[in-house]
Amino acid sequence: MKMLIVYIAFLLFGLYELFASFNHQLFEANLLMISNLVVIICLIFARFNVHKAEQGSLMKVHMDIEDIHQVTLERIAYNAATYIQIALSLSFTATLVGFLLLRDTQPVIVLWSGILLLISFVSLFPSEKIVSITNPNFKFPDPQSKNYEQEYFNQFDDGEKYVMLKGLYGLYSLVTLCLVLLAFALMFYSIFTDNSQLVSIIGIGILLLLIQVRYTSSLKPSKLE
């Protein structure tokens, strides 16, 4: 609850700053401030959902409606995770763009983006209460373990792995398609604006190569002994 109040204070301060300096600063600076405010709103929604899920998990409900209650809590917890992911992606982009365009003129706004990126990243690590809602049998492996990733993955049962696999396969197809479309869009952008995006196109090409090779080699059967 304390964090929620801190985020709301951040939002009010940000709104005040935006309206106070809207007409005196660059368009890019205003856009970046709006982006930072959206990140704070996402973090507020995430924190609010975490609080709601934690409170809900303390409630004693009748056995007949326990499943419905449990599904509701899981949905709230995953909503919180989605808001944090949005905040993380937005603040990451804002930090890079801000550093590129505003590091000399408006460094404070870029600093705010960086701080929000850090907060979003820290928020990614779920509280034990939330994990006990979404995955009651989950035990975090020893962080010093050499097989940490494998042990972490093994905590999920086959049904959960099946859901993850379906989601990841959809994601793989989506990312591949988006990268191809983006490369084409950048090619036309380069032609029509004389603003070369060659480095970006090569970067996308390397990424596509890595994704495809990694995925195909993971499907290759192991050698028979």
């Binding site: 326990e66 899981e74 009651p136 049962d157 086959d158």
Partner: peptide, 30 residues
Amino acid sequence: NQTELAKRARISRQTVSLIERNEYMPSLLI
């Protein structure tokens, strides 16, 4: 209920729900 069955079988409630909805064929272990 699903939650209680999941606890007793030491699997996730999501897995119980998927099996009941015929969206997932369980492994032998489950």
